[in-house]
Simulated scan of single mutants.
Amino acid sequence: MRRNGLRILVIIPVYGRSSLPTGAFITTAEYVSGLVAAGHSVDVVTTIKEPGEVYREGGVRVWPLRQWRRAVQASAPELVISHHGDRKAPRIIARLGRTHHLLMVHGLADDTDLGRPALVWFPSAGCRAHYPAYRGRALVLPPPIDPARYRTTPGTLVTLNGSTTAKGADVLAQVAEQMPDTPFLMVRAAGHTPGLLPPNVEVMDRSDPRSVYARTRILLMPSTTESYGRAGVEAMLSGIPVLAAPLPGIREALGQAATYIPREDTTRWVAELRRLQDPATYAQVAQRCRAHAEGLDYPANLRRFEVECRSLGATGARPAPALRR
């Protein structure tokens, strides 16, 4: 008779205490927490930022890459979960025989070959559409976003969560130059130094998300590419208005609650920011944003992902074979 929980191995670049992770890694960590809470046994192998030794965090055993063979032997996984684009994961997965594989696709990658996993997770239909050649089983499910992690009292700054052109740093610089009396905040992308910025733009290192939103009055998302608008949802949980480029993934995440502006139309970005300087207008938009974010079902997203993982186990998953060195 089969026990209730699966043995699951997650292969992910970073996990937990080893970094201040980006949205993709936070999303996976949230799903992992849901799997542990549902009674599954989860081990994680990190492929970039390696802890010195094995450690436990939140019921998960975390292994550095150099110990991946020990991780496989100790966990005997019936399901393996990895990220598309992680170049170190495939060589481990290739050694796992017929163990079921769930591939998580967090972005719109140039490499559109997803291989033949048992299941592919996408954060939005827009992201799924980017991979038309994939014909296998797919799960389109929004990232789980825990309100308790993000809710705060909004601050006073106009914020961009990223310092690259892909996140809209060029648009923020142009807008800030036209609004010298408005304070702006740019959160530095990992390993990236932004170019010359107007003096009214403060740059801060990546930090706890709540501390960023506690300084934020309005969030800008003039991105060139997004598979989902996670940062917008996070901000809206605190009633922070979001101005965003009209990308499919962002529209799926933010619906009618955001204000959409073509990223190259700097005049419109400035006009909308000035419109939100009116307290009554700001309050109305903030309420709309808060209502939208509160309508998203965080526990249901965790449950749906867990059900899909459990269903893979019910289709005859075979534990990973013993490995030879």
Rank of each mutant, 00 (worst) to 15 (best):
A89L: 08
S41M: 12
P123Y: 06
G34N: 05
A166E: 15
P262N: 05
A291I: 01
T225E: 08
P132C: 07
N4P: 05
A293S: 08
L219A: 11
G34D: 01
L79V: 15
A76V: 13
A176G: 04
A71D: 11
E53F: 11
R149W: 01
H192W: 15
L103R: 15
T266C: 07
Y260T: 01
V201F: 04
P246E: 03
G155K: 02
Y15C: 00
R310K: 15
R324H: 09
R230W: 00
S41L: 15
P279G: 01
W68C: 04
E53S: 15
R98Q: 11
Y55F: 15
D170I: 15
G107H: 14
P262V: 04
P123F: 03
Y298K: 00
S124M: 08
T153R: 13
L157E: 07
A317R: 06
R95Q: 14
G136L: 09
L35D: 04
L139R: 14
R217D: 00
P246R: 07
E252P: 04
Y131N: 13
G316Q: 09
A253N: 00
L157N: 00
A29G: 14
L296V: 08
G249I: 02
P154V: 02
I11M: 08
Q174R: 13
C127S: 11
R304C: 08
R91W: 14
L102R: 07
F305H: 11
T164N: 10
G115A: 13
P279M: 01
R318K: 14
Y213I: 06
N200E: 08
V201W: 06
R61A: 08
L220T: 07
Q277I: 00
